[in-house]
Design a protein around this nucleic acid. Structure first.
Lengths: 218, 218
DNA sequence: AAATCAATTCTTGTATACAAAATGTTTGAC
DNA sequence: GTCAAACATTTTGTATACAAGAATTGATTT
């Protein structure tokens, strides 16, 4: 017997769900997954317990475990909360950020811009993520950072489908610049408000998200 | 065999930890708890998995599960996040709150005041909690409501020790009034800021919290 | 033919068994 | 007396076994 496998299994199942391998309401078959992972049911069930707390999966007693993909309403709610968490990170970061971190933000932004110019969607996506993770950390609040990262991660598959249009990319870049400015100036209120607006799902982004959801539902 | 016991066991262990039955670093003995609950190790271990996600317990592979009571720094971080979540709830509630909910807030406030006058700490505590839960719900965001409730619940045992002094109680009441006013006026910004300040741990509250922590550490 | 009930089959939940790692203890050497 | 190594014990992690609830299928009845 090796070391604890349940945690690694949990993240693997998580990734399978994120990757879109399952739709809402699908039942996760314990024995099938056990065979698939080459283990017994026990570690699979432990993984289910953990997944249930994140809301990714619903545990119905005596019935089984079913994947819970968020619907449009829940998804918008989650984005709303994400916007508020980012705003909070920005508010704290404005008065706590280090000079080094500002440099890192500028670097991420520069690489973002290069990716935009090169039409490199993946590159843009990665540097954009780095930008936001830096701000989480610079909140100087490890608990907030953790919560922000968790929700960010959960929304990842949905955000990915959003930032396709070139127009949004350059607008997003302008917002990044404004955010850095506010942080440099130590203007907590502006940093918070700019970040909130940057992350919020509204207007065009709303339409894209709904369209992506409709496609995923098929 | 009856229905799933793991969930009920998880909450029971959670309550035991909240109640202060364990200190930071204490190991949770699987076999002892199994005997205590009259079940086998399996449901206990499933409960541990769930508790680990809330951060209440740490699962160290091949070593065991240990209770993780937040230290001063983590606790302050959690209160900081709580303040931001409440601010977010207030921001949304300001534009979404129903007339009925405003009535309920005023009712909770009135009963709060009565409890203050009667020196009824428990009564004050309960109505104060109701006041805040109403605002969570009136955010009109079920996901945010859930997150706020979760953190609120986690901080419960620490908040309890805070609001002892009469001075704080009446100041807290004045803040409640200001919050209701902002919500009635639909002033999202004021509602958010007032709630943030109301929940934040600063000045006198900070000293009380530290003192309570020192006492609990003995 | 539709519906209902019973029996069979599946699946979950829990207990037990067993293997490997970690911990504690005894014994031996210096 | 102290340190270290080998052995014993404890404890975790996983597999398997078994019991009870849910689902399904088939037979019987109306």
């Amino acid at each position: 017997m090796e070391t604890r496998r349940a945690d690694s299994i949990a993240t693997q199942i998580e990734e399978m769900i994120f990757a879109g391998g399952y739709s809402d309401g699908d039942r996760l078959d314990e024995v099938r997954l056990a065979e698939q992972f080459g283990v017994s049911r026990t570690p699979i069930r432990e993984a289910f317990q953990r997944l249930s707390l994140t809301g990714l999966v619903e545990l119905i007693p005596r019935r089984g475990t079913f994947v819970r993909q968020p619907g449009p309403v829940e998804l918008l709610e989650m984005f709303e909360v994400m916007a508020e968490l980012e705003a909070a990170c920005g508010r704290f970061a404005a008065v706590r950020i280090t000079d080094q971190a500002i440099e890192n933000l500028r670097d991420a932004n520069a690489k973002c811009q290069m990716a935009v110019d090169a039409g490199d969607a993946d590159g843009y996506y990665n540097e954009n993520e780095r930008f936001h993770l830096i701000i989480y950390k610079q909140s100087g609040n490890a608990f907030l950072e953790q919560e922000a990262q968790r929700l960010h991660n959960r929304l990842k598959p949905f955000r990915r489908q959003q930032l396709r249009l070139r127009g949004r990319m350059s607008q997003s870049m302008a917002e990044h610049e404004a955010i850095v400015s506010a942080l440099v100036n130590g203007d907590a209120e502006t940093a918070a408000n700019t970040l909130r607006g940057h992350v919020a799902v509204q207007g065009e982004k709303f339409q894209n998200l709904m369209a992506a959801l409709r496609n995923a539902a098929e």
